[in-house]
Design a protein around this nucleic acid. Structure first.
Length: 223
DNA sequence: TTTCCGATCCCCT
DNA sequence: GGGGATCGGAAAA
């Protein structure tokens, strides 16, 4: 069963999940894309992990079985999707940082627009209009080229926490192929935005991406 | 091109 | 009450 591929330490699971398909199916339609960038987070010993303070109400699903979704809110604005990995109960997880859209791009664009409407309150209307205009002209490959953008494009928020991503009945799920990206096609580097964790955790080379894919966050001309 | 900063709100060394 | 697993627009250079 596919779940077994994530029932291993997060660094190994990270390499295996690259190239797999993230799928959302709901009343609005179907969206899908290829996972092209992830970060590995270990358990409580990892000072960059949300499990660093031990088990809390927020992170409780991390202390469970592989293949479960953990979604959190960062900077008061953006939801981020994680997938719990093995070993079971180790509180390890993968942050899904970027997806290359393959299906439902129009719906993703609509969802991104809906996100703007829902989250921009005190921003001046002109600025919101400019953001919407930029979104309309955004290339498909950049619709989910960052962790907050993955959530916006797929309509993911904290209510998705606890979803079994390997249950074919789930609205949000993971499909193969797993382990399909060769090691020499994967670029490796330190995780983004974890300086607060200090050494050696901030320097751990636990960010993995499909080398050269234009949907990877920070790709040229993304900004 | 690089750096800076505001938005926005939940979580808890 | 401080600050964040981010994003995008504005300012600086």
């Amino acid at each position: 069963m596919d779940r077994a591929v994530l029932d291993r330490p997060p660094v190994d699971a990270a390499r295996a999940i690259l190239g797999a398909t993230l799928v959302r199916v709901d009343a609005r339609g179907r969206r899908a894309g290829r996972i092209v960038e992830v970060e590995a987070y270990a358990g409580p010993e990892d000072r960059a992990s949300h499990a660093r303070a031990g088990r809390t109400e927020r992170n409780t699903v991390m202390f469970g079985r592989p293949g479960i979704a953990y979604v959190y809110l960062v900077y008061g604005m953006h939801d981020c999707l994680n997938v719990v990995t093995g070993p079971a109960d180790s509180a390890s997880a993968l942050l899904i940082r970027a997806v290359a859209p393959s299906d439902g791009v129009d719906l993703m664009r609509a969802e991104r627009l809906a996100w703007l409407a829902a989250h921009r309150r005190k921003v001046e209307p002109d600025a919101i209009a400019r953001e919407a205009d930029r979104l309309a002209r955004l290339p498909d490959v950049r619709l989910a080229s960052g962790p907050g953008l993955v959530a916006a494009a797929f309509g993911i928020d904290r209510s998705d926490t606890g979803t079994d991503l390997f249950d074919p009945r789930s609205s949000l799920r993971l499909e193969g192929p797993f382990g399909a990206v060769a090691a020499d096609a994967i670029s490796v580097g330190p995780r983004i935005g974890v300086a607060y964790a200090g050494s050696p955790w901030a320097e751990r080379p636990w960010r993995f991406a499909i080398a050269g894919d234009p949907s990877v966050s920070g790709s040229p001309a993304t900004r």
